[in-house]
Design a protein around this nucleic acid. Sequence first.
RNA 1: GUGGUUGUAGCUCAGUUGGUUAGAGCGCCGGAUUGUGGUUCCGGAGGUCGCCGGUUCAAGCCCGGUCUACCACCCCA
Length: 471
Amino acid sequence: MATKPSIPKGTRDFSPVEMLRRKYIFSTIEKVFQKYGFLPLETPAMENLETLTGKYGEEGDRLIFKILNSGDFMQEVKERFDTKYGTAPVELTQGVLADMKSWISEIRSSELTEKALRYDLTVPFARYVVQHQNDIAFPFKRYQIQPVWRGDRPAKGRYREFYQCDADVIGTKSLISEVELVQLFDDVFTDLGLQVVVKINDRKVLAGIAEVSGQPEKVVDIVTAIDKLDKIGREKVEEEMRAKGVSDEAIKGIVPLFELKGSWNEQRPLLEKWLASSATAQLGLKDLSFTFNAVGTMKSAKLEFDPTLARGLDYYTGAIFEVKAAEGSMPGSICGGGRYDDLTGIFGLKNMSGVGISFGADRIYDVLLETNKFPAELGGSTKLLFANFGETEALHCLKLLRTVREAGIAAELYPDAVKMAKQFKYADDKGIAYVAIIGENELKQGIVTLKDMKTGEQKAIKQDELIHGIQ
RNA sequence: GUGGUUGUAGCUCAGUUGGUUAGAGCGCCGGAUUGUGGUUCCGGAGGUCGCCGGUUCAAGCCCGGUCUACCACCCCA
C-alpha cells in the first residue's frame, strides 16, 4: 500500500451519518434565524490580509491563516546571487550569508502574501456592512453559517477549520434586539429538545464595578479575570488581578461580586445599592431589568443573571450572553454573544451599534450525541430498495421506482444483478426499511414480494399497491 | 508558542533482556444456501510495525529528527 492519504492537521472529514446530524443542527438554527427576520449572507473564504490584521489582538494576528501569493518571489534573490557569484559552486562564507540575508529581507511581506482565510464571521460582516452601507436597509439583520480557519494548535474540540453560525442586528440600540435574541435561543433549543440556561450580564455593570472599586481604567483586566471565575476559582482570579496591577484595595471592592447569589430579582436591589455611585452601572441594571421583563415566559430555556459572566472579547459594550447545556457533561458554553457599540468604526463607519450571537455547532453536536437527542430518523436513508434480478426485471423496477419517488418516498434500485445475500446485506447496512423483490415469478403475476427488514416478514402484494404497502 | 504522552491489519489492541516466517478479536471477502440481511459453521485475503536517519551481526522494540493524534499551560469556538 502506498503512503496512506491524509488531511491537514486540525481538519476533519464528516461522514454521511455525521453530516445528517450536522445538517439537522444547522437547518434547525437556520429556520429559527429566518423566523426572526434574519437574512442569509455569505462572504468569501478569503479576505484581503489587511482587512483581518489588527482586529483580533496580538495573539489573533498570529493565528490568521495567510495565503501564499503565486509566483516565484525568490527569483530576485536568485538573480542577484548569480550576478554577484556566478553559477559555479561557491563556498558558504560569512560574506555570502550576509548578502543572502539582506536580499531575502528585502522581499516585502506584501509580495509574499496579501490574502488570508477568514478568522471569524464578525469582521467580514463589518467589512460587508461598511462596503455596502448605501444599499443596506438598517437595522440590518443577517445570519451567516460558514467555516472559519485558525492556525491554532489543535486540541480536543478545537480545530483549524470549524463552522460558526452567527446572527447579528446592526444599526439599532434598541433593547428589543436583546430580548429577541434571548427568545431565539429559547426557540432553537426547544426545537433541538435540549435543556439550556441562557446566562446574561451587562458590560456596563462590570464597568461600574471597576469604577466603584476605584480603578475604572482597569476594566479590561478586571473583566478578563472575572470571566475565569468558574474555571480557576476565586483565589486565582484575585491573584490574576493583582498580577495585572489591580490594587488590593480595589480587589476588596470587587469581592461583593463573588458573594452574590440567587435570582435576578434578589440580586438587583443589592447591586443597585452597592453600585449606587456609578451612573454607568445603574444604566446597565436598568437595561437588564428591561430585558428580563420583556422576555417573559420562556418555552424551555432558563434565563439567568450571572454577574461573573464577562466574556473575553473586549469589543462588547452592553449585554453579554452565554448559553450552557443543562444536560450532559459539556463544561463550556455552547453559544455566546453580546452588544458592541462600534464594530464598524475600524472600517470608517461610526456609530453603528449592534448585537450578535453565535452558535457553537461542534459543541452542540457533542452535547446532542452524548444526551442521545438526535432524532432516530434524520431523513437521509432510503426507505425502499428494489432488488436486481437482471436486465428485464431491473427495467421494470425502474418504472415502479419513478412512481414511488413521485410519491415522495426515497427509493433506489440495486445497480447490479448480484446474488440476493449481497443485496439484502446492502439494505441492512444502509438501514433501508423495505426491500421489494420482483423476479421472474413476480413479473409474470404483476405482483411484488415486499420484505420488512425490521420484522423479517414478507408478503406478496399487487404492484400498484406498493406505495400503500410501505406506509 | 512551552512541556508531556502516543502511533503495529479497515477498527480496537497484544507482541518477552533486541533474535528466524509480527499475532488476536471485530470487520471484510468466499463457501455451507444458484431468490433473502441481521444469528450459526467452515475457509480466505489483508502489514514498508507513522515517516526519515542512526546504533547493531541482527531493530516493531534502543537513539536522534520529523509528522499525527491526544493531555496540561497560553489562548480561544
